[in-house]
């Protein structure tokens, strides 16, 4: 913790950044913290309860010099932002934190969050400084990372449809999933436009289906699995199930994982004529 506070103080003192975005605790709850001066930096913490992906706050600090406290999963979002020319690398200072899992906010039994189960990014793949982990380094659960997806795929399509229909029926179109997602940075989301109207605005089966499909598709090759959308959803729609399906397909079809590097073309924009030909046999006549 001291390491983290010292780093934040140093950055603010030397005026390398205007703000450090990290975590703090208020009345037993962990909340995001904006720290503007070195004397305030003492409040910064990092522990299991620091679930949020702070990269999301870059939406409000696009052209400013900021430092961010980021876990391995969160830092991947920075790579996607850089890939999509949303920020300049020199504007941000990444204080990477080594992380061996955060807690599951939604269940009371203090286990690890679902997203940590198969984590491969204990140390961020992009950073300017790393805060070492103290305590035991418990390795993540091994095994098939997409087991739940594979099982769901095996269900007959009408059962899959019934499942999602029930889930989407709950959707109240509050767009919390969008607001919390660091990848949803559009100036004007297409759901808010009626020319062309891609998404019916009413929270009907149709409107909700359209919204959730578009949301998931726009994250293809971009979702870094921070799990924030699912956490933020007030009606508990398993949004990560859709995201994970696309992560699985991107990996299997195109051998691509989001947020690994900043200077590669996203798989959805890219193609390899020889490799892609394999797709044709099954999918294209």
């Amino acid at each position: 913790m001291k390491e983290l506070i010292d780093k934040a103080k140093e950055l603010l003192k030397e005026k390398k950044v205007e703000t450090v975005i990290g975590y703090r605790e208020i009345r037993g709850c962990v909340v995001p913290a904006y720290v503007d001066s070195p004397c305030d930096a003492d409040c910064l913490i990092f522990d299991k309860r620091c679930v949020y992906n702070l990269a999301n706050y870059l939406k409000w600090f696009k052209n400013k010099n900021v430092a961010l406290v980021l876990k391995g999963c969160d830092a991947k979002s920075i790579n996607v932002w850089l890939q999509e020319f949303q920020i300049k690398r020199e504007n941000i200072f990444i204080i990477g934190v080594e992380c061996y899992g955060v807690m599951n906010e939604k269940s009371a039994d203090a286990g690890l969050s679902d997203k940590c189960g198969h984590c491969e990014a204990h140390v961020p793949n992009i950073y300017d400084a790393v805060i070492k982990h103290q305590g035991d380094k418990k390795e993540s659960v091994q095994g098939e990372p997409f087991k739940d997806i594979q099982e769901f795929e095996k269900l007959p399509h009408d059962e899959r449809w019934d499942f999602w229909k029930k889930q989407f029926e709950k959707c109240i179109k509050c767009y919390a999933c969008r607001e919390i997602c660091p990848m949803c940075y559009c100036k004007e989301c297409i759901v808010e436009r009626n020319i062309p109207q891609w998404i019916m605005s009413s929270p009907s089966v149709k409107g909700n289906f359209e919204w959730n499909m578009v949301r998931a598709f726009h994250l293809a090759g971009r979702c870094v699995e921070c799990g924030e959308c699912e956490r933020a959803c007030p009606v508990n729609i398993p949004l990560m199930k859709l995201n994970k399906k696309l992560i699985k397909e991107m990996k299997e079809l195109f051998d691509y994982s989001a947020g690994q590097k900043e200077d590669v073309k996203s798989a959805i924009d890219d193609f390899y004529p020889e490799k892609d030909i394999k797709i044709d046999d099954k999918m294209i006549r």
């Binding site: 769901f152 795929e153 399509h157 009408d158 059962e159 899959r160 449809w161 019934d162 499942f163 999602w164 229909k165 289906f209 959730n212 499909m213 998931a216 598709f217 293809a220 859709l242 399906k245 696309l246 397909e249 991107m250 079809l253 195109f254 798989a267 959805i268 890219d270 193609f271 892609d276 797709i279 044709d280 999918m283 294209i284």
Partner: peptide
């Protein structure tokens, strides 16, 4: 091709035939 394949997989996952 890439866009189609990914989106088809998603729609099928959501229960479309």
């Amino acid at each position: 091709r890439r866009r189609f394949v990914i989106f088809k997989k998603l729609l099928e996952f959501a229960g479309m035939e």
